[in-house]
Design a protein around this nucleic acid. Structure first.
Lengths: 236, 236
DNA sequence: CCGTTTAATTCAATCGTTTGATTGAATTAA
DNA sequence: TTAATTCAATCAAACGATTGAATTAAACGG
């Protein structure tokens, strides 16, 4: 029931009729699955939200489950432009820093900044983050799609960072556990967002609040990894 | 389909017929809702798992949603014996420590030990933790039950601890955010358990692995809160 | 530039199942 | 005898999926 009566948004001429419906179904899937979970969403809701017919789901994807999988695949793909550069800079920063703790601290600050920007700022991750978190906390049979595509690679990057900061072997359980703890430091602000909102009396993240959260997380992670605090917030 | 053919477990004579069915439905609800979520579980599954008739759900609770709420309420109640003492010792420890950082460090070590024991050891929280985490990550209309009963109080306790360690006002956003980060440090080992399992090649938490995770978390949290490391693992 | 053909896509209608809930009779224990 | 509880049977509604006809837009031949 999205834009059936209102004006249709940008009927991209470069897309065929079918591709557009396909894309709208993927959008609807992301919006609804992320909010209510797989079983709570009906094919009729999906079709309605997409402005398409129920039969379009079977026609374009095969079935409801196949649409869900397609949503996960597209999520991995279209978050690459955001996550890729952050991971890239982190890898380069670690290699360049060597044993220089101050340099590693700047890498950490950059990572936290990038990560919180992706997850807490803007609308792009508004549905994608909850989608990831849902599979994160409660892996379905399609958990592999996100693990291979997003979660595993990020976790490996953070493990490299933790290992460098603490002088550990990146392949050791210890390094992986410490990295896991760092990830927890970050993702809890998305996973348990409602809990923080209630405790602080906030209703949503604003730029000011994100800046405060980012400052607190950066301090916590730097402390956690025994790294010095950079004098300024500069990350280059 | 649980114990219909096998021997029935302990038909407690002190319980009326109805109370026993009621309890078995609550058990079934905890087991199934925690694993599959509210919508994925059918009333027929619940009745079968409880060894009861479908109509028993309406008779004893009113409906499926009321059974779900009852499961949350009972979860808050029957975790009190575990969480209560940990929170109690933490509150007393903070009050007794004052500005003594070493004493606060022992409080932190005790808290981490207690928290990880509750969440990672034994069978008692095997279904309860995922149940909490499900509401944690994806609050339903009944989130209040857990927030008022468990999540809020624990978060307040940890905020008091973080505030004491960092010299902050316990009512400040900063303290609440730092506490939230600490909570993330801990709960990520339950929420994102599957991710850690894949990264480490583990299949489950064993006593050895729990001990290792506990050591890593304790170090990370102590560092994070700028507290000294106790010389031994003693927590009294 | 037109009319026709063709394949891709959309659509309303309907399929058989499963859902949560309800009924009134049967059973149990006090 | 009585009230509490369980039971098989059944309800209407909603579910995911499928069908064959209708519609659309592009390709083609004149």
């Amino acid at each position: 029931m999205a834009q059936n009566t209102a004006r249709e948004p940008a009927p991209d001429a470069s897309l065929s009729r079918g591709d557009e419906t396909r894309g709208q179904l993927l959008d609807a899937g992301l919006t609804l699955f992320s909010r209510y979970g797989y079983d709570s969403v009906t094919t009729r809701q999906l079709a309605s939200e997409a402005g398409a017919n129920i039969a379009a789901i079977a026609y374009h994807f095969g079935g409801k489950r196949d649409l869900y999988r397609a949503v996960l695949h597209r999520l991995v793909e279209d978050t690459e432009p955001l996550v890729g550069p952050v991971a890239q800079r982190m890898a380069e920063g670690i290699a360049a820093a060597g044993a220089d703790k101050a340099a590693l601290a700047r890498v950490v600050a950059g990572f936290v900044h990038g990560f919180t920007s992706i997850f807490l700022e803007g609308d792009f991750m508004a549905h994608r983050a909850p989608m990831v978190m849902r599979e994160y906390a409660n892996p379905s049979q399609d958990f592999d799609i996100l693990y291979e595509g997003r979660l595993g690679p990020i976790h490996r990057s953070v493990t490299a960072l933790a290992a460098a900061a603490l002088g550990m072997d990146p392949d050791s359980p210890e390094a992986k556990i410490r990295a896991h703890a760092v990830m927890g430091n970050l993702v809890v602000f998305e996973v348990a967002k409602q809990l923080l909102m209630r405790r602080t009396g906030w209703e949503a993240y604003t730029p000011d609040r994100i800046a405060l959260v980012r400052r607190m997380i950066t301090e916590a992670v730097l402390n956690s990894l025994r790294l010095p605090h950079p004098d300024n917030g500069d990350r280059q």
